[in-house]
């Protein structure tokens, strides 16, 4: 039949997927190695490196920093992004398109350039190596996505539904709370999940703005693997992937992840 794949084509697809997923899949068995050094296949199996990980103060601290930063960045991006998206969609004023472009522009900039620029700015503002600095730096990566997702989600919301609520006696705040906000929920959930993951996994910007006193988990991993290769990082990686999976699954449960992403 026309369009149906041949067997060689199917085989090629399988190989490509293996290539694509290999680096993620390999860390899982490695994390259960009990060897002192990285070896494959491991000579002995066990939870030794997980135990080491949970006693590695640097990694533990970095994890909690990452977690807290991600939570605050998510809340901040929603708090700043949703009103902005609402204003851009529902008000007509000059410069609207320019503002939209400005808000999404950080997406276009390579993070190495953005990271350097933020470093140089933060040196002057004395934000380098601070929690606040990390939050602000991460927000510039997450807010463009929030603005985009929320403005798509607002555009899909028919204005007549809000007008219907108005005609039934709902005041503007009531319309927002009872109609607009509930209908924006899928967008809010998608934005939160994406913001959290982007912040939690952010490396390049973090590398520039973290310092000896404060480090996020990805930065800690980066610094660690630059000098040593042992199975502990496989354990951290499994933890990181697990956190990501957790976020995806919770979103999947509430609205269907693929739908949220494809939208």
């Amino acid at each position: 039949m026309i369009g149906s794949p041949t067997w060689t084509f199917r085989l090629l697809i399988v190989v490509l997927y293996l290539f694509l997923l290999a680096p993620i899949m390999i860390v899982v068995p490695l994390s259960f190695s009990n060897d002192p050094l990285l070896m494959f296949p491991p000579r002995s199996w066990g939870m030794r490196w997980y135990v080491e990980l949970f006693h590695h103060q640097g990694m533990i601290d970095a994890f909690w920093i990452s977690f807290r930063v991600a939570i605050i960045v998510t809340l901040l991006s929603l708090a700043a992004g949703i009103p902005a998206a609402y204003a851009l969609r529902r008000f007509v004023f000059p410069g609207r398109d320019a503002l939209m472009a400005l808000f999404t522009a950080p997406l276009l900039l390579p993070s190495i350039v953005l990271g350097l620029a933020i470093l140089l700015m933060f040196v002057r503002l004395q934000l380098l190596g601070t929690f606040t600095g990390l939050v602000i730096a991460h927000s510039i990566v997450t807010t463009p996505y929030v603005v985009r997702i929320m403005s798509t989600s607002l555009a899909a919301l028919p204005p007549t539904v809000e007008e219907a609520a108005t005609m039934l006696g709902a005041s503007p705040p009531q319309v927002f709370r009872r109609v607009t906000l509930p209908l924006m929920m899928p967008g809010v959930i998608a934005s939160s999940a994406l913001s959290f993951m982007l912040s939690f996994d952010e490396v390049v910007l973090s590398l520039f703005v973290t310092g000896p006193r404060i480090s996020t988990l990805p930065v800690a991993i980066f610094n660690y693997v630059e000098v040593r290769m042992d199975p502990m990082i496989a354990c951290v990686s499994v933890v990181l992937v697990a956190v990501t999976l957790l976020v995806i699954l919770s979103v999947e449960r509430s609205l269907g992840f693929t739908r949220a992403m494809v939208k």
Partner: peptide, 18 residues
């Protein structure tokens, strides 16, 4: 409009989907 006490039926009905 919310104080006018007027019923309006929209062309696309505008039922609240949620």
């Amino acid at each position: 409009p919310h104080k006018r006490d007027i019923g309006l039926v929209f062309q696309n009905y505008a039922l609240f989907p949620h």
